[in-house]
Deep mutational scan, measured.
Amino acid sequence: TTLTVNTQTYTFTSEEEAREFARRYGAKTIRKTNGTWEVHG
């Protein structure tokens, strides 16, 4: 199964959650914005 996250942004309140998600789905960018963490595919 392949998950494609081209134009979607996922927002997390903790860096740990964001990094775990990025690691699991191979997202390329993690960015902190206004106190939340954004993961970009």
Rank of each mutant, 00 (worst) to 15 (best):
A22C: 12
V5D: 12
A22R: 01
I30F: 04
F21L: 02
R19P: 00
Y10T: 05
T2S: 14
T4Y: 05
K32Q: 11
N6R: 03
Y10G: 02
T36Q: 11
R23V: 07
Y25S: 08
T1Q: 12
T1P: 15
V39M: 01
T36N: 09
A27G: 15
I30D: 02
F12I: 00
T4K: 10
I30S: 04
N34H: 03
R24G: 03
T4S: 11
Q8G: 11
E15L: 09
N6Y: 07
G26K: 06
E16G: 05
T2R: 14
T1W: 04
N34C: 15
E15R: 04
S14C: 08
T36G: 14
E20A: 07
T9Q: 06
W37E: 00
E38P: 01
R24Q: 10
T11I: 14
F21A: 05
F21Y: 06
W37N: 01
A22M: 07
G35W: 01
N6I: 12
Y25T: 14
V5Y: 06
F21T: 01
T11E: 07
A27T: 06
T2L: 10
T4E: 12
N6G: 11
A27P: 03
H40T: 15
F21H: 06
E38G: 02
G26F: 04
T29Y: 13
G26Y: 03
T9W: 13
A27Y: 15
W37G: 00
N34A: 05
K28A: 12
S14G: 02
V39N: 00
H40K: 11
T4W: 04
E20L: 05
T7Q: 10
R19S: 04
T7C: 15
E38I: 10
A18F: 01
V39D: 00
E17I: 04
R23P: 01
L3M: 13
R23E: 14
T29P: 08
K32A: 09
T7F: 12
S14R: 03
F21M: 04
R19I: 12
F21V: 03
A18R: 00
K28E: 11
V39Q: 00
R24F: 06
T29M: 14
K28L: 12
T1S: 12
N34P: 02
T36A: 08
T7G: 10
V5L: 08
K32T: 10
E38Q: 06
K32V: 09
N34Q: 04
T29R: 05
K28F: 07
F21P: 00
E20M: 05
H40W: 10
T33H: 10
V39W: 01
T13Q: 09
V5F: 07
Y10M: 08
N34W: 00
A27C: 15
S14M: 03
T11P: 02
G41I: 15
T13E: 11
R31I: 13
I30M: 04
Y25E: 04
K28G: 09
F21D: 01
N6L: 12
T29D: 08
T29S: 09
T36M: 14
Q8K: 11
I30Q: 03
Y25P: 00
E17Y: 02
V39E: 01
T1G: 13
T11Y: 13
T29F: 12
V39L: 02
G35V: 01
T36L: 14
T29E: 10
Q8T: 11
T29A: 14
T9D: 05
G41V: 15
S14I: 03
R23F: 06
W37K: 00
K28C: 15
E17K: 05
T13K: 09
T13M: 09
H40S: 14
R31F: 10
R24K: 13
R19M: 11
F12L: 00
T29C: 15
T13F: 11
A22S: 02
W37C: 01
W37R: 00
L3T: 13
R19Q: 08
G26A: 05
K32S: 08
W37A: 01
H40D: 13
E20I: 05
T13A: 11
R19A: 06
H40E: 15
R24E: 08
K32Y: 14
V5M: 08
E16Q: 09
F12A: 00
A18C: 02
E15D: 02
A18Q: 00
Y10P: 04
G26L: 04
K32D: 04
T11V: 12
Q8R: 07
I30N: 03
R31H: 10
K32W: 09
Y25F: 10
T33F: 08
A18L: 01
T7Y: 12
H40L: 15
E38H: 03
Q8L: 12
K28N: 09
K28T: 13
T7V: 09
R24D: 05
R24I: 10
G35T: 04
K28Y: 08
E15P: 02
E17G: 02
T9C: 15
L3E: 13
W37P: 00
R31V: 12
H40P: 07
Y10A: 05
K28M: 12
N6V: 11
R31K: 11
N34K: 04
R24P: 00
T13W: 08
F21C: 14
T9K: 09
T13S: 10
R23C: 15
T29W: 11
A27V: 09
V5A: 12
R24M: 10
K28R: 07
F12N: 00
N6M: 12
T4P: 14
A22T: 01
T9E: 04
T36I: 14
T29V: 15
E16D: 08
Y10D: 02
T4F: 05
G26N: 07
E15M: 05
T9I: 15
S14V: 04
V5N: 12
T4G: 14
E20T: 02
T33Q: 09
R24L: 11
R31W: 06
K28I: 14
V5T: 12
E38L: 07
Y25C: 15
T1H: 12
